[in-house]
Design a binder for these strands. Sequence first.
DNA 1: GGATGTGAATGCATTCACAGCA
DNA 2: TGCTGTGAATGCATTCACATCC
Lengths: 228, 228
Amino acid sequence: MASGPARRSPIPDPVATRLSLYLRQLETLDRRGLKTISSSQLAESLRLTSALVRSDLSYLNFSSTSRTRKIGHSGMGYRIDELTALLRCTLGTDRLWEVVLVGAGNLGRALLAYGGFATRGFRLVAVFDCDPKKVATSYGELSVRPVTDLVPFIHEHSISLAIIAVPATDAQDVADTLTAAGIDGLLNFAPVSLRVPDHVALRDVDISVPLEQIAFDVTRRRQITHLS
Amino acid sequence: MASGPARRSPIPDPVATRLSLYLRQLETLDRRGLKTISSSQLAESLRLTSALVRSDLSYLNFSSTSRTRKIGHSGMGYRIDELTALLRCTLGTDRLWEVVLVGAGNLGRALLAYGGFATRGFRLVAVFDCDPKKVATSYGELSVRPVTDLVPFIHEHSISLAIIAVPATDAQDVADTLTAAGIDGLLNFAPVSLRVPDHVALRDVDISVPLEQIAFDVTRRRQITHLS
DNA sequence: GGATGTGAATGCATTCACAGCA
DNA sequence: TGCTGTGAATGCATTCACATCC
């Protein structure tokens, strides 16, 4: 039993990732004033198949709070406002997440300046760095605090999410500190594989990896073209 | 036929992504002075299984240039220098890729300042922006050029890779321009799904997506803990 | 002994194809 | 007719288990 897209939860990881993309796309469509969208339109706009979109969205049927059974409307697709709300609720971004940033180097400062988080339910509430020269410098509304203040700050403000943007050599130390302070989730930009306890959610972003993948794609295509 | 990890090419996408991670890890291990590593050690350091590592690396056996049949050494694992060279060659990063950056906003400036590319075979050789106020401003060794110079620059320097770091609304236009100029690969940081011809390699990086995934992971874990 | 390389087995993600509904 | 929701079929990624080699 339990064939097809396994009605009812454990939402698989690849599905969850696409749910984020659906949400992003719906927000764009909403800004354009659209009210409904079909699985095939949504699929095409993201270069996916309509069956995959429907399959993914079917995971939302019985998710947590909503008792609603069907989310699409036969013959006319999905209502953008409904679906957006349901996605936000499922992903947990229907509330504001306060996030701390560790590392005020180039990458850290870029993240501070990056406006994209605010519109998606996240707010950077503090920046920390171990370099005394950087401490007290201001970026936008935030001024850099010493790492020694990190643990008390997390406790005092009940922070659950942190972004690690320190050099690779310091990343594990920072992760350990954050873990000990009781953090729930970590977004790691350092190019190392961190070790954290099972109860801490961890994702890595290494911008060199996709760039390398492109180099690989291009190289492979050239080889194919070459010997044809 | 062709069961198991399909000896001989078309390297699947998930495999190619992990090859990048193996390379990154090997570079770290090399810096620590190690000479060899076993599939199980490499696996553990990246939280994978040893069978997966061996399976992935077996794709390198007959790849393009190298005529070597076996890359590991029975009883003693893989030689780090050998494997590093083979990975670089396979991924296409055994040579220098000159990359142009379009967009000198917060993200673009961070990428300029980010040192990580240089050590992995990529060099940012020019920055472009359409905002006249930004043009001619210098960041590090590069000064911002007007987008009108983009196409001639690409032709003149035979650039094949570009990074898009402009607002979502401008990204498709920039992609079209780059495509028309004959670019081979695009790394897109704008939160939109771009449309490019099949012969152009495209990858997306949206830092809000992994952050949302973490929020989702944390939310789900809380629900599980809650009702247990 | 300790490791690789790989066919065979498993399990998961995606697609197909169609019943059912507006 | 147009579209969703989903069981069944496919196909791909991962793991198992073991022959093999130093």
